[in-house]
Design a protein around this nucleic acid. Structure first.
Length: 491
RNA sequence: GCCCCCAUCGUCUAGGGGACUAGGACGUAGGCCUUUCAAGCCUAAGACCGGAGUUCGAAUCUCCGUGGGGGCACCA
């Protein structure tokens, strides 16, 4: 591998499911790698055994793939940097922790939790208590099996400067840093060590991650410098803020403002709610990045050509689900009938509607402009697949109309349709328009009760076409049922 | 409390000292179209957080406020 080759990684921890914050970070990594013919690695950071969530890695991989985000190396595909799960890489962390120990850049710490809690309330971080323990004494205590951690020896004075690609120079007074833990009592590394070791070993050239890491960036730089490694290019993406309230989106809090029947911050939920991955990608890409002031519609394949980290915006973005709807609607309208059929069918089946494929294909052009999510199709055309339409007779009667007039309309419509020899929407339209004229009422007035009778709904796809698709028998039956209901209304 | 980051319409953003009466998109309002609902098309309202500088000239550069966000673990 050429050393100049761009190599990035997405390194989630298996503590929950993929949401738009993580997905967007994965997306930017992916796009950057693709744009520069680099490679992307998926690495699982599972060094916290307490927060481990059983199926989250599989779900995460599934969600990423569903979005269209792929990687060159990772747990299920393998690669030359195996393994890709941190709990299987313990030897490396141990090795470099020892290295730091030997070079006097780290030390053993024997402080227990109680002391630490006490120190924290008095100090700003760890007080360096074990820093002065004689090296051989400390070594012997470790040999005797005493519980210990390994801490990094942070500089006490001076300033640490780090450069971030989208935030420029960041500096911190070293006195703000404490001697943080590298290796925990259980022998597992802490993120700061593990991530830096892996990034180095895996030749990561650009670390693209969330802003929540910005405050620990100096620690990371210090570790890398202590080990005398090359520093990657840092790129900290701003956080995504909740749509309604305050603060960043989070796996823990849901319901409230960021969840609704239609939306969710979780990729898996969005899938179940009937969104298309391309719509989600387009939406996420624009939360913090833009090409210019003219282009907003991007397919994943197009983003791969035009993405640039230099155009990533450092300020936090608020999640706006209405814009997701916009991209989704736009995407739907660009889809072919057969493609839409594939996406809609599972939702119809799940809703319990028998799916007649050829009929569905006829129906799709009628709803393409009306649905946003694929799941919306259930509400729009579910009635077509029902055996019986439940209606309240009162709903059949328009505001300004009467029971008598409605019955007259329905009877006439039924008769007209029965007499039709060619049952196509043009003939249906012509005959019903003529009927309205004959009855001296507006077309809308005529169609309202018919719409309810046929669909059971106040809104429906265009009626003439719907009547044609459902067929004469079904239509006549439904109108008859409505007439019966109206007649029995007063009894 | 301490540290760090950020700051243009309600939201996402364009903007790199003069091309800014600040552009686009979503949303909102009105209109056209119309069998309902959409879609589509047209129109409108809507922002440079505040104050000092620097400069002939600041949305753009600097500083100070203010506001928002993130982080201060043997979590990532």
């Amino acid at each position: 591998m050429s050393p100049n080759k761009i190599q990035v990684r997405f390194a989630p921890s298996p503590t929950g499911y993929l949401h738009i914050g993580g997905a967007r970070t994965a997306l930017y990594n992916y796009l950057y790698a693709r744009k520069h013919n680099g490679k992307m690695i998926l690495r699982i950071e599972d060094t916290d055994r307490n927060r481990f969530v059983e199926d989250s890695t599989e779900k995460l991989i599934h969600d990423l793939k569903w979005l269209g985000i792929t990687w060159d190396e990772g747990p299920e595909v393998g690669g030359k940097n195996e393994p890709y799960v941190q709990s299987e890489r313990l030897q490396y962390y141990q090795k470099y922790a020892t290295n730091l120990l030997n070079n006097d850049k780290a030390y053993y710490c024997f402080c227990n939790k109680e002391r630490l809690d006490k120190v924290r309330s008095e100090h700003n971080g760890y007080d360096g208590h074990c820093r002065t323990i004689d090296k051989t004494v400390a070594y012997n205590r470790v040999q005797n099996g005493e519980k210990h951690t390994i801490r990094f020896k942070s500089p006490r004075t001076g300033i640490t400067n780090v450069t971030d690609l989208i935030r420029h120079e960041i500096s911190i007074q070293n006195e703000q840093l404490d001697d943080f833990i590298l290796i925990k009592t259980d022998g597992f590394p802490v993120y700061h060590l593990a991530a830096m070791v892996d990034d180095h070993l895996m030749n990561i050239t650009h670390v693209i991650r969330g802003e929540e890491w910005l405050s620990s960036l100096p620690k990371h730089a210090l570790i890398i410098r202590a080990l005398e490694w090359n520093e990657p290019t840092w790129c900290h993406l701003s956080v995504l803020k909740q749509s309604g309230g305050k603060g960043k989106i989070s796996k823990r809090q849901n319901s409230k403002t960021q969840e609704s029947d239609k939306h969710s911050i979780f990729i898996g939920d969005l899938r179940k709610k009937g969104f298309h991955p391309e719509a989600i990608i387009n939406w996420m890409a624009l939360m913090g990045w833009s090409l210019d002031d003219k282009h907003e519609d991007f397919k994943l394949s197009e983003l791969e050509q035009v993405f640039s980290l230099k155009r990533v915006n450092p300020s936090p973005a608020t999640v706006n689900f209405e814009k997701l709807d916009h991209f989704q609607g736009k995407y739907v309208r660009s889809m072919s009938i057969s493609d839409l059929n594939c996406h809609i069918t599972p939702f119809l089946i799940k809703a319990g509607y028998h799916d007649d494929d050829s009929q569905l294909n006829q129906l799709i052009p009628l709803i393409r402009d009306r649905i946003t999510t694929f799941k919306d199709s259930v509400e729009w055309i579910g009635f077509c697949f029902k055996n019986k339409i439940e209606i309240q007779p009162i709903d059949l009667i328009s505001k300004k109309s009467t029971q008598k007039e409605t019955l007259l309309i329905l009877n006439n419509v039924q008769q007209t349709l029965t007499n039709l020899t060619t049952f196509d929407h043009i003939s249906i339209e012509n005959s019903l328009r003529l009927l309205a004229k004959t009855l001296d009422i507006k077309v809308g007035q005529l169609l309202n009760p018919v719409r309810i009778a046929i669909s059971g709904q106040k809104v429906s796809p265009p009626l003439f076409e719907t009547i044609e698709i459902l067929g004469k028998n079904k239509i006549i039956d439904r109108i008859q049922y409505a007439i019966d209901r109206l007649n029995n209304m007063n009894r």
